[in-house]
């Protein structure tokens, strides 16, 4: 695997993470899903790829096992017998921090890609010396 593929794998993995964060933020108030119950926060699992250096890949998107947020809203159609509505276990502050972290990691991979591109360009310029 060359430098370009490695940086590309990093960019793709961070973009995948951004997609999941965006879904979490979009569903912060979703009380009903296809599987019933409120939306569950999703998180990506990264793993380094076999051959060293082989880049990174997203090996799974798994739900967060934490409990749903209970909010007292007796008038809500999804309220239980006691008047509590189960809201997603998404913490918006946590998601925003994760979002910034993913963006920075994406930028770092873009910088590594640019460095590799500059090096390849210099190698090409050797022929023009």
């Amino acid at each position: 695997m060359d430098c370009f593929d490695i940086s590309a794998s990093g960019l793709a993995a961070q973009r995948g993470r951004l997609n999941v964060i965006a879904a979490n933020i979009a569903n912060v108030e979703t009380t009903v899903t296809d599987t019933g119950g409120p939306y569950r926060r999703q998180q990506v699992i990264f793993a380094s790829k076999g051959s060293n250096p082989g880049g990174v890949e997203v090996v799974g998107v798994v739900p967060d096992p934490r409990e749903a947020r209970q909010v007292y809203q007796p008038g809500h159609p999804n309220a239980d017998a006691e008047g509590f509505v189960a809201y997603p276990n998404v913490n918006i502050v946590e998601e925003m921090v994760d979002l910034v972290s993913a963006t920075r990691s994406y930028e770092a991979n873009a910088a590594a890609f640019n460095a590799a591109k500059a090096m390849a360009q210099q190698a090409l310029d050797l022929g023009r010396a």
Partner: peptide, 27 residues
């Protein structure tokens, strides 16, 4: 030296790509 720096570039790119991978060890 060019071969060495190119190999190091690949290793650094791999380290950066795996900055969020749990239990990863840098090369």
């Amino acid at each position: 030296a060019l071969r060495g720096t190119a190999a190091r570039q690949a290793a650094l790119a791999n380290n950066i790509a795996n900055v969020d991978t749990p239990t990863f060890t840098r090369t």
